[in-house]
Design a protein around this nucleic acid. Structure first.
Lengths: 207, 207
DNA sequence: CCTTTTACATACACCATTGTATGGATAGCG
DNA sequence: CGCTATCCATACAATGGTGTATGTAAAAGG
């Protein structure tokens, strides 16, 4: 085979990552060989070992394409009035997250990370999940604290408890949905459950 | 090596399952060889292939030791008055579940099932998780429907939504805790979050 | 007490996967 | 236009794991 142009080389790298996503999701990370990934992209293992050092390196590159910091979702709302209505900020950020997850690439990679891979090499998906969960929980709690100060939270509901509650609920929902995404729409059920939960947490209209 | 008595043979079988739990939890199912399990139990692969057909069979036997039907937790309460107070029935059943999970064997096996294994052989842990989730969600919803009929549920809260909400929250909580159980006590935080959530869902005291 | 079956240990053949070494053709660059 | 680094295919050796076949000593059973 002949040498490709730089653009073509970059394209095969992406193609390899695409193939990895699909095969990982179908067979699980541990049970898929580099050969299978290469063949699925109409390449050989030579291409993989050129672009990546080994399977773990390929895996990390795959994750790199979909890294979502939670705070970024809030910033994407672009509405400056959200600081005055923290519960609405939470709501909109979560809705953004639901829509993100519906995109095939995000959905696939997160499903792989949560359901289709074990520890291997120097990669520990559980540690990654921990970091994501902690970050999400912390951000949610901050907004709930803010909401409590403004009297928007139901009396008697500790804002930290509220943060942990919502984080657990969202985590369980993602977990369920990523197991097989065809059972329900994450946007639909997510919106339904999120609104119900926030309604329970919101302070009753005064007056 | 000499032949063992029937009791000794049964003991080695249990020892092999114990060893499998520990090694699976530490290294992940896919990355552990039968040799490692055997050596961890001071045996050889011969013992494993005598008691089990292969790795998948060993894995299923391991699961068999901890199978918990949710309904059984409710029955364990033994209090006949729970039908009159469905929310209290949910509460007590969940608390039972928390205590169960704290036992090392239950904790380890569930952690393996959720976090440390992929599809392999004819075993699909995701299908098992689906079944468990569906069963739990169904049972919870039944109780919430019952609670709604008796006016114990907060007005405007759909009982089915309540069931899905609580199931998602509990699922997320288990998921988080099983990731590493040393970060917090499942009984403590579980009780805290469960009570907070049920308090939000309960109809306000009338009169 | 003798035979058979049990409960393993040991040994062997086989396969899949990995990492690397090598080859080759062309794109990029001076 | 020629040189070299790039991009990938092919070939090779090494490894680790699986399943099975065989050995064996003692427990079960009569």
């Amino acid at each position: 085979m002949a040498r490709r142009t730089k653009a073509e080389a970059a394209a095969t790298r992406e193609a390899l990552l695409d193939a990895a996503e699909e095969v990982f999701l179908e067979k699980g990370v541990a049970r898929t060989s580099l050969e299978q990934i290469a063949r699925h992209a109409d390449m050989t293992r030579g291409a993989i070992y050129w672009h990546f050092r080994n399977k773990a390196d390929l895996f990390q590159a795959m994750l790199q394409r979909v890294r979502i910091p939670f705070q970024e979702l809030v910033e994407e709302i672009g509405d400056p009035s959200v600081t005055e209505r923290p519960l609405e900020a939470i709501r909109l950020a979560c809705l953004k997250g639901f829509e993100r997850l519906e995109q095939p690439r995000y959905r696939r990679v997160h499903a792989i990370l949560i359901h289709h891979c074990e520890v291997f090499g120097d990669i520990d998906p559980l540690t990654m999940q921990n970091e994501i969960a902690e970050e999400a929980c912390g951000a949610l709690t901050d907004y709930f604290v803010c909401a409590a100060r403004q009297g928007h939270l139901r009396p008697g509901l500790n804002p930290e408890v509220a943060g942990e509650l919502l984080q657990a609920m969202l985590g369980g929902l993602f977990h369920d949905w990523l197991r097989n995404h065809e059972r329900f729409s994450i946007v639909e059920r997510g919106t339904l459950l999120l609104d119900a939960q926030l309604e329970l947490m919101r302070a009753p209209a005064s007056g």
